[in-house]
Amino acid sequence: MDTVTDITLRTLAISGTATLLATTWSLPLAYRLAVKGPRTVAEALESIVGIPTVLIGLLLYLLFSRHGPLGPLRLLYTPQSIIIGESILITPLLIGTLHRVITSLYDTYGETAITLGATPSQARDTVLSEALPTIAGSTIMAFSRATGELGIALLVGGNLEGKTRTITTAIALDVSMGEFGDAIKLGLALLAILIITSILLNRFNKVSYR
């Protein structure tokens, strides 16, 4: 049997990894878009921040399904497939929020640094270190969205006990069984995770910003 702790730890591992993964491509991409454009790409990504998770879940399911294009990878019903799905889900959110801040910071600090003789990579480090609070904020938002999503975990993960059962799929199952009390317990665990991560990251952020 999966305990609340098992499910919570699994959820943390899955959505945490998805957030880290998405950050590794979203940050460079957001920086590139902010400095070189095109602006329309960033705007298009911003507009799909609210994309339904169940839609991404369905598309990925068709992709990972045995006879789907990526069927041979055998990713269906694995935690990895949820990680991939969630990292795609939060990419528009990360790029959308980061790109705006980096654009304005680059105008202020980046241009100045380059005028003062900094190389592009020195200018980048300056801008990004100024952007650190926003990067942290975006990451928290992305983590929160990944942790709270249901559609992807349900469709590609399959809500398998002991393997891919996350807090949200467990809540959905409990509700379908009429076990509202258990569902609320899991809901509180979810809220606790989100609040604690937010507090920790903000604290770390203040320390490093000083």
Binding site: A13, T17, P28, I83
Partner: peptide, 23 residues
């Protein structure tokens, strides 16, 4: 920035490998 990103990528991949034994 580059080192930091590489560091994050590393953590992400280690986690992916670490939860593999589950499946």
């Amino acid at each position: 920035a580059k080192t930091t990103l590489l560091f994050i990528t590393g953590i992400a991949f280690i986690t992916i490998l670490a939860i593999s034994p589950i499946t």
